[in-house]
Nucleic acid binder design. Structure first.
Lengths: 336, 336
DNA sequence: CTGTTAGCGCCTTCAC
DNA sequence: GTGAAGGCGCTAACAG
């Protein structure tokens, strides 16, 4: 910067002024400075600027499982919204490990991110954030007790959608392959499922609820367990992407025809769903919008000065899911 | 930090010393400092430290398409290796847009990342990096002319593997659904394909080579085009994940049975391949290892002082792909 | 072994 | 309009 100033024959602060448009500089000097910047291919040092201003124009994002295609879709949304607001995103994967998540959060705070977007890996207690005030918005997974600064799908309603679809097809013995129930979306889906069943006057056998972690292997094992129950459920509702795939594997392994012998429905969409055999019926969350909405919510908290009411609220947002009916759900088998 | 020093009754530099283990501090004062840090829940300011040291302990990663499951797998590898070396990863998605990629690169340099891992979105020319020296290692996609600082699959050999598999099944009319051929993996795959065909004394009709961008829709359109050629190819080799899926869609839409009427093979693996109908035969790249290897290669360039020869080289690494034979490839139809 | 000091590169009052 | 000076929080010489 000193070099730029020297080359342009102006003072350092003049350079700063044209860089930030913070003061009026004469046309001619502005041009000289621009040329000098060009010639030296100078780029302002973000680090130094941050040290001075206290803002880094960076947000941190912590998600629990990047290999679950839902999260990359959310990330795309976050990224696009952040870029538009000229923010950089520091992205981390906690691998469903609360300890790792804590340490990641510490790192982010230590890097002075201006805000954090978090999909909790752990329990619903919520992370212990450093004393230093750092705005945080929860995405997808929301600790209990959080009343604002969160965006997630209305999972209760989403499960209702799925359950009602099965009910309409005549199913009565519906099993839930749930994720870890301390995690809000999975809890919400369980509740939506149970209430819908109850509202229809149907009991749910406790053994029809299987809780497990959210990996394909667990879905496979859980599916096998549910399918060997007597009487066997006629439909399985899988609480996410990976569980759905795992349970599909168990269905195939047990030589059950889907949907003629068993209906399968799950959450989250995926390009490949269209091409599986059978094509899978799912409840689709608006993942990309979740990302953009989360960033905007965080932005409002980071920059209350720029608050524009039309950009939405900074409180709690519940996004609507929609049902995509494909081939894996069908009428309940006549023999049952 | 000043507060910590005051509370512990020592000087600022003593605090710095215990923080960084940069000098020997007496047991007792160390303990006092620790307690003060604890009490104030103090965390050192990474920004300020970086300004001073010139190192940020951060690397930037730019990938072209996060919704292609191959890249999240690579990212997992990068992340794990980076974490082990106490580096943070600044991650960006260029969306296959060279201009975006350039701007991302600038941002990263401006943030003083210590190094960059890049899978080029654009042509093979390679990005223009800022004057400021910043080590860069190419991952997966390598500009032509790069002779060191890159890790990628041996795509030539990988294509050979796939082509030979089809040849062994009796196929002669094999079409290639290639990605953009300015992009190194796709070019390498084309070359491996052509050479293998030629070595077997088989001609490849120019219209059997279809070049397109790497999205599902393009694979679908390209597949339809290839399948309406006369004579129709008996096998299609798709140059990645998404193209494979798109071409599968076209096969299904044209009511062709796979593999009895047409064999399909592609690159990159995916948990869902196992469950598609048919289960897809693919050439699998070691994505996770590509990530870890890329980080280590970069590390050697960022910290030549810590160079440990046993950690591999800092030059060019070619990883081996392997063939996973599933159901989408079979003997060439008898009638043809 | 410990404390003092001088910047890292930039932004921001202030005089001019 | 423009330039000079101070300091953001930390580290690395150096002097005690």
């Amino acid at each position: 910067m000193r070099d730029v100033a020297r080359l342009a024959g102006v003072s350092i602060s003049t350079v700063s002024a044209v860089l930030n448009g913070t003061a009026v500089v004469s046309e001619e000097r502005t041009e000289r400075v621009r040329r000098a910047i060009e010639a030296l291919s100078f780029a302002p040092d973000h680090i130094a600027r941050s040290l001075k201003t206290g803002r880094t124009n960076t947000i941190g994002v912590v998600i629990p499982d990047i290999t679950n295609a839902f999260y990359p879709a959310v990330l795309r949304g976050i990224e696009d919204a952040a870029r538009e607001a000229r923010y950089t995103v520091l992205f981390c994967n906690s691998n469903e490990d609360p300890a790792e998540e804590q340490s990641l959060l510490k790192v982010l705070v230590s890097r002075r991110v201006d805000g954090i977007l978090l999909a909790c890996s752990g329990d619903t207690i919520g992370p212990v954030l450093s004393r230093r005030h750092c705005p945080i918005v929860f995405v997808d997974r929301v600790p209990i007790g959080i009343k604002e600064g969160a965006v997630t799908t209305d999972n209760y309603e989403a499960a209702e959608l799925a359950t009602r679809h099965l009910l309409d097809l005549g199913h009565r013995r519906i099993a839930l392959l749930g994720g870890r129930l301390q995690i809000s979306p999975h809890l919400g889906r369980l509740q939506g499922f149970l209430r819908t069943m109850n509202a229809a006057g149907l009991p749910v056998l406790p053994e029809y609820i299987h809780e497990c972690d959210m990996q394909i292997e667990s879905g496979y094992a859980g599916g096998k367990k549910l399918l060997s129950l007597q009487p066997r459920p006629t439909a399985i509702l899988a609480s996410n992407n990976k569980l759905l795939l795992g349970s599909l594997r168990s269905v195939q392994e047990m030589n059950l025809k889907c949907p003629s012998q068993l209906s399968l429905i799950g959450f989250d969409d995926h390009a490949w769903n269209e091409h599986l055999n059978p094509r899978l019926t799912t409840v689709i969350q608006p993942a990309y919008e979740m990302g953009t909405c989360a960033f905007r919510t965080l932005f409002r908290r980071m920059r209350p000065d720029l608050d524009r009411p039309e950009d939405g609220n900074s409180g709690m947002t519940f996004l609507k899911a929609r049902l995509e009916i494909r081939e894996s759900t069908g009428p309940v088998p006549a023999a049952l």
